[in-house]
Design a protein around this nucleic acid. Sequence first.
DNA 1: CTGAAAGCGCTTACAG
DNA 2: CTGAAAGCGCTTACAG
Lengths: 342, 342
Amino acid sequence: MKKTSLNDIAKHLGVSKTLVSFVLNGKAKEYRISEEICKKVQDVAQELNYHPNRIAQGLRTGKTKTIGLIIADIANPFFGKLGREIEQEAARHGYHVIFCSSDENPEKSEQQIAMLQQSQVDGYIISPPMNSEDQIRTLAKRNIPFVLIDRYFPEIECNYIVVDNFDAAYKATNHLLALGRKRIANITLNVDLQNMKARTEGYKQALRDASIEIDENLVKILPFSHDNKDVARSIKELVGKKDNMLADAILFSTSKIGVMGIECISDLGLKVPDDVAIVSFDNADAYTICVSPVTVVAQPLKEIGKTAVQIVLNEIKNQKTLLKIQKITLKTNFIIRKSCGS
Amino acid sequence: MKKTSLNDIAKHLGVSKTLVSFVLNGKAKEYRISEEICKKVQDVAQELNYHPNRIAQGLRTGKTKTIGLIIADIANPFFGKLGREIEQEAARHGYHVIFCSSDENPEKSEQQIAMLQQSQVDGYIISPPMNSEDQIRTLAKRNIPFVLIDRYFPEIECNYIVVDNFDAAYKATNHLLALGRKRIANITLNVDLQNMKARTEGYKQALRDASIEIDENLVKILPFSHDNKDVARSIKELVGKKDNMLADAILFSTSKIGVMGIECISDLGLKVPDDVAIVSFDNADAYTICVSPVTVVAQPLKEIGKTAVQIVLNEIKNQKTLLKIQKITLKTNFIIRKSCGS
DNA sequence: CTGAAAGCGCTTACAG
DNA sequence: CTGAAAGCGCTTACAG
């Protein structure tokens, strides 16, 4: 059962496919095509179960109505939720999205961008891994529609939509200070990514503003591809000695670290928040049901996803005109639960 | 900066694009093209930064090298992880995947299938919502390559790859029985989906085999789009009366219910496993860090994803020949943690 | 108001 | 061994 084409309809009616194309694309009025013939075309289209071939349209018009999404890992709930918002907003505009997980690996993301280009995607939404500056610069130089999410490169002039990580970490740390915590630790990742660095900077600034000396022993930097053992070691160093704990609070820079960290803390027989208070970035599901529900910095995922799509689509539709570069920084949402005591 | 086409290379060298196409597609040997000219073509391709236009290839060959994935919700970690495996295996074979979240809504999935068809995807991996039998039948009738995952329709002859839900629930319930639980409840969803029904059936069979009468008051069926309140009501009915609890154990049929359920149990001031033992389907992250880490039925996501891709790709490559229908049922992995006591 | 024609970038019989 | 040509299914100037 072959799919029906424009030509099939045209032949069926003895008219040209130009005509058929016009009416099916809603240009009947514009070309003042008689209502009668209009109706006929539509009826036959329905009867023959006609569906336009997007690939052919894509080849002809140069627009495939699909956007490429490159994130670290779709299995990570943070990106999963973000992906969902992006998919939804894209669908609202008739766009498809192709997902690619880069694992924060620049070689992978480079290859993925190349593949997506071959597939002629109209634009990109990218959460760029570290050391991918060149790839991003190339996109910008070629005037390809794209927007960065979650992180950006300050030195590259391009669209991005991120969150005020500095401010969020600053407030989170202050929250801990206000509740009387003195030795606040931060566990973060060894990645040269602006968002992670801003979190640690905000944390440090809050301490400085409270006239607390920064103790680098309290800042644990894990390798990017960390596992339970890495987290366990840091936790042990920070709160392992029951009678002489280095830290009385921990700010986790990601929920992946946080979830593992809480498991380790509980393995040590420690209580949250009594022994150690906790704040984490990202509102993971796990945080609502763990022993002591965790106070978190939640990101406005819906807004990030929706805005990201709108920015690329706008770029796509106005590719010839030079649009104003969009640099958007959203506020986070601080959700207080029980992990910091009161 | 326009992209370079086959024609550009051909002109550049004063040869035909047929030739260029042959060498770039590795058919040089087959057509005994001189090594010298071969080399030249490759050099120029590189120099001009040539990348084949997949859309054009797709139009010509009828194959787009992309597969459509329809699941309930990519933000749900279960599907996120599955999606990741699928993406990975597809990429290994040079295929892209377009994700669509159906929200278990058959109208949505129908529309998504239609959209994907317009985009000429080569095949589908689908986790079909209830009442989508007709859509699946239509695909089968049209001989379109696809495979069902997570659930299937027993009355439809087609490829699927699922898990032995009956067996898993049977064993989980037996585990609870062996630990001395007498009044085991099951909280599931009001969906006419084979996987959910099999879970409750396995649970009931285990009780029957232990000569325990089935008490329908212990089987709670939530509306599909359940929220915290629905779960809370069920939990309250089951274990709300401290001195006269209906249930002493709960089998959660999904981790989404389970995560909410554990939160409710803890809100009631109850202890797991002392007051109530718990087993849940799906190994959610949250389950490792909650008060009492949860014993779960884990699904072999890697194998499901990988096999699903292999089945569709095989169908795609042999679309004219009638392949044997693949009906695959995988075993689950029972992970014992602390939520059932010992 | 309507149609013939070109062309998007490729692949692939066909001919020599 | 190599090239001219057709055609995948569409859109869109152009002509009348």
